[in-house]
Design a protein around this nucleic acid. Structure first.
Length: 831
RNA sequence: GGGGGAGUGGCGAAAUGGCAGACGCGCAUGCCUUAGGAGCAUGUGCCGCAAGGCGUGCCGGUUCGAAUCCGGCCUCCCCCA
């Protein structure tokens, strides 16, 4: 009776002076105060704290922050906040990857200067990031389109150029006739321009490259970095290391400058089965080898191939085509004279641009041979082969046949012995090739970092002296695409003098791929205002490599590979002393809405109105509650109510006046609430560490409900209640930073909750006193027993046998086996 | 075609060798309310009145015991062709 009356009094007395949870008012208030009091200001070193660099991939300022950004940045921010409350000195910076094609295209489309367009977007995005309650130190913000940043792109380019790792060479680029410009590989979608859908052609142009292939083998070494296996596999496939043999066919009969034609193969064991040779249309010998009677057909074919994208050319769906050159090549191993054809499924950039055709042992070659009526010769025989024709290409291991002295060997052995012979006779050699090519980073675009090179008639290619940096991107230049680099039309920009001889000279007019900017930005964040160098060595030493990198998997083989390459180069240039930029990587999944891709047009979900209506904390928590962060989530407005209710409950629990509580439930009730609190702490901390935000929130919800029940019972002391409330708020703080801060203040604690340590837990206090032991008969659950936590095996079996339900199964049966899993179950195998 | 990931209630999902469905949405019933798109309580995998049986894409295997491990197949998503 007393308890009931007390409770009613408490409720009515507190109802009046308690106010409701109104996210809009408290969120703005705390965002301003955090900024005013520099709560997220990061110092390079804090005595007694270890540094933790939590980096999330910085965004393109291509428009509004959309809900997918929220999904990424809210999760990353929660994890960074969690590490901060774990006691680390955390660097969690933000910037903008603000050069590049998307911004430039959007700017052109709306007839605004790319700089104005970009800076307007950045202002808007900065505002939105603030509205999320992110914990960035804005003093460290960097934007890559400013000279303060891109001058260091130019500086690093010069260092790579000096080291022979940047070079200019003629190469094929993706040319879009519609946009009158080249586009990057990643902007080619199914052979067409992603913007105007014009088919992409290949055009030969002077291009700049970074020698990433020099680091191919080291880039394959990934055992020592803690990255998702998925990404490691993608990088390995992308690099595509293959071991093979360069093999020379004799073409001396034509009396050309070259007496041999080199092909590359990974299957030299099939060399006795070669019945034709195929050259890429761009192969340098095509012109000279083509016989007069084939000249017209070959020229026509080459012209057609030039209009076809590489992706299309190598597609397995597409029919393999080719034309004979009329010339023949002689296989030096057996003297066979085989026709030379031109085929566009062979790429000039892979291997040697020439392949040997072995129709019996390669699917593509077989289709090609059948189509053009070329001979098919089996040289690797399956077990029990009767000498008849094969119906399909034989690709698996077998025995060498029709292979001269190698007949009878398993082909794995033939592979080595034939390679030995080729090397001994000097008609070829073993070689490792990679699918990955050097990184073509020059763009005929305006909105990027000018490449700091000067072309002089007498001195050739001359690097701009470091003291002359930055080479400024002219603001006034014409930026619309005209078919060549926009900067080429700006006389003030191109006309200069040669740094070596002083004669009039022309500047390089290409700009850099934006992936150059993002290859080292993590270093810049360590000392973003450094004016004398790209980064300050001691700051880099305190912060790098990045402890935890977070971002989407779409960058697996672009940014993430380039950044690793840059890191290795800078290490070799002795600018840094580590070889991997990101020690740990976590990829968040994709957010969809109602099972469909979120799109501005067909399935929109703008964050600002949601924040206005529900509050940033609610949106953050809901996004994190949808499912495991790495698996992505499925947004549906309906589910928001659950998070709203929970945060309201936290508010309501934390604002109750607990002074009237008395420990009527005794020690038992106290212990049970303390146990729930310690269990929750353990679960939440362990889950947050592993990015399992969804189950961390579930644990906090359970604790909230448990507290509500305990209050109804009126059974715990005010002191215990208060401790558990504080625990709940501290654990909620990384996820819902505003409400936690507000309630922390209302409970009389000092500012800020985000400078507090997470609560610890005691496994003994978290341990159950009573456990449920499951009794299985032949693996099926037949009984559940409530037993003391410290029950012995003997006691557990005794309890099991005492149960009537168990007896029903054991009475007429023989027990052949008994299994005991401490604290969990008893299994009786009966017959 | 190759590689990777996933498949569990009406829905988002838990459980990674030991009680399948935690937590949340939705739904149902009741309470409270001038009102309810608010709050509270209880229930909610399927079949069955019940006892009980069935149940984690499908088929098989390993195990005392499988959503979880192994083999084969189907479907969906991502990356590369």
């Amino acid at each position: 009776m007393t308890t009931t009356r007390n409770r009613q009094e408490r409720d009515s007395s507190t109802a009046n002076n308690r106010d409701r949870y109104e996210p809009s008012s408290i969120e703005k208030k705390w965002q301003e105060r955090w900024e005013r009091e520099a709560v997220h200001k990061t110092h390079d070193d804090v005595p007694g704290k270890d540094n933790w660099y939590a980096l999330v991939m910085f965004p393109y300022p291509s428009g509004d922050v959309h809900i997918g950004h929220w999904y990424q940045y809210a999760g990353a921010d929660s994890h960074a906040r969690f590490k901060r409350m774990q006691g680390y000195n955390v660097l969690h910076p933000m910037g903008f990857d603000s050069f590049g094609l998307p911004a430039e295209n959007a700017a052109i489309a709306s007839n605004i200067h790319p700089r104005i367009y970009t800076e307007t977007n950045i202002d808007n995005m900065r505002r939105q990031f603030r509205s999320m309650g992110t914990s960035y130190d804005w003093d460290r913000e960097l934007t890559t389109h400013t000279p303060d940043y891109y001058r260091w792109n130019q500086y690093l380019f010069l260092r790579l150029y000096e080291a022979g790792l940047a070079y200019q060479s003629r190469g094929f680029a993706n040319w879009c006739e519609g946009c009158q410009t080249t586009v990057a590989n990643e902007q080619v979608l199914d052979g067409a321009c992603e913007r105007c859908e014009t088919p992409i052609a290949r055009r030969e142009m002077d291009q700049w490259f970074f020698k990433i292939t020099e680091y191919a083998d080291e880039l394959l070494q990934m055992e020592h970095i803690d990255w998702p296996n998925k990404i490691k596999v993608m990088q390995t496939n992308w690099i595509g290391r293959s071991q093979g043999v360069d093999f020379q066919f004799d073409i001396s009969e034509y009396g050309l400058s070259e007496s041999s034609l080199t092909t590359f193969t990974t299957r030299i064991d099939t060399v006795y089965g070669v019945t034709f040779v195929v050259l890429a249309p761009e192969h340098p010998l095509v012109e000279q080898l083509t016989r007069p009677e084939q000249r017209e057909a070959v020229s026509e074919y080459i012209a057609k191939a030039a209009r076809t994208s590489e992706i299309e050319r190598t597609s397995t769906e597409r029919e393999k085509t080719g034309v004979p050159t009329g010339a023949y090549a002689t296989n030096p191993l057996n003297g066979d004279r085989v026709p030379i054809l031109v085929g566009d499924y062979v790429l000039a950039t892979y291997g040697t641009g020439a392949v040997m055709g072995v129709p019996a042992h390669d699917e593509r070659d077989l289709i090609f041979a059948r189509k053009y009526d070329l001979p098919i010769r089996v040289v690797i025989a399956p077990d029990g082969w009767d000498g008849s024709d094969l119906t399909e290409a034989y690709l698996t291991p077998g025995t060498q046949v029709n292979s001269a002295e190698f007949d009878g060997l398993p082909n794995s052995e033939g592979l080595e012995k034939i390679a030995d012979k080729i090397e001994a006779e000097n008609i070829g050699n073993r070689r490792v090739t990679y699918r990955m090519r050097d990184w073509q980073f020059s763009r005929q675009r305006y909105w990027g970092t000018p490449i700091p090179i000067i072309h002089c008639e007498s001195c050739g290619t001359v690097p701009v002296p470091v003291t002359d940096l930055p080479v400024q991107l002219p603001d006034e230049a014409e930026f619309k695409p005209t078919g060549r680099s926009p900067l080429a039309d700006d006389p003030d920009f191109i006309n200069t003098s040669c740094p070596e001889c002083g004669a009039p000279a022309r500047r390089e007019t290409d700009t850099m791929d934006t992936f150059v900017d993002s290859s080292w930005y993590h270093l810049r964040f360590a000392s973003p205002q450094e004016a004398e160098a790209p980064f300050e060595p001691s700051a880099v030493k305190s912060w790098l490599p990045v402890h935890q990198y977070m971002g989407g998997a779409e960058h697996a083989v672009m940014h993430l590979l380039y950044a690793r390459f840059f890191t290795k180069v800078l290490r070799d240039l002795k600018m840094i002393d580590f070889g991997e930029p990101y020690s740990r990587l976590f990829n968040q999944g994709l957010l969809v809405k109602d099972h469909q891709k979120i799109s501005k047009r067909s399935n929109p979900l703008a964050p600002d109105p949601l924040v206005e209506r529900y509050g940033a904390d609610t949106i953050r928590c809901y996004l994190m509650f949808l499912g495991p962060w790495d698996q992505g989530g499925d947004w549906s407005d309906d589910g928001l109510a659950g998070i709203t209710r929970w945060l309201n409950r936290v508010w309501e629990l934390a604002t109750r006046d607990a002074s009237g509580l008395s420990s009527t439930g005794g020690e038992q009730a106290e212990r049970e609430l303390i146990r729930a609190a310690h269990k929750t702490t353990r679960r939440a901390v362990q889950d947050l560490e592993r990015f399992k935000f969804n189950t961390a929130i579930a644990a906090l919800m359970e604790l909230s409900s448990e507290m509500n029940r305990r209050w109804e019972g009126g059974s715990v002391s005010a002191g215990t209640w208060s401790d558990v409330i504080d625990r709940l708020l501290l654990l909620t703080a990384p996820l819902a930073p505003h409400i936690a801060e507000e309630l922390w203040e209302r409970r009389g604690h000092s500012f800020s909750i985000h400078n507090q340590s997470l609560p610890g837990w005691d496994d003994e206090l978290a341990a159950d006193e009573v456990i449920t032991v499951v009794v299985q008969i032949n693996g099926k659950v037949r009984e559940r027993l409530e037993l003391a936590a410290d029950v012995t095996e003997e006691e557990a079996f005794e309890a099991a046998f005492a149960s009537d339900r168990v007896k029903a199964y054991t009475d007429d049966a023989e027990i052949v086996r008994r299994i005991y899993v401490p604290g969990k179950l008893v299994n009786l195998v009966v017959r």
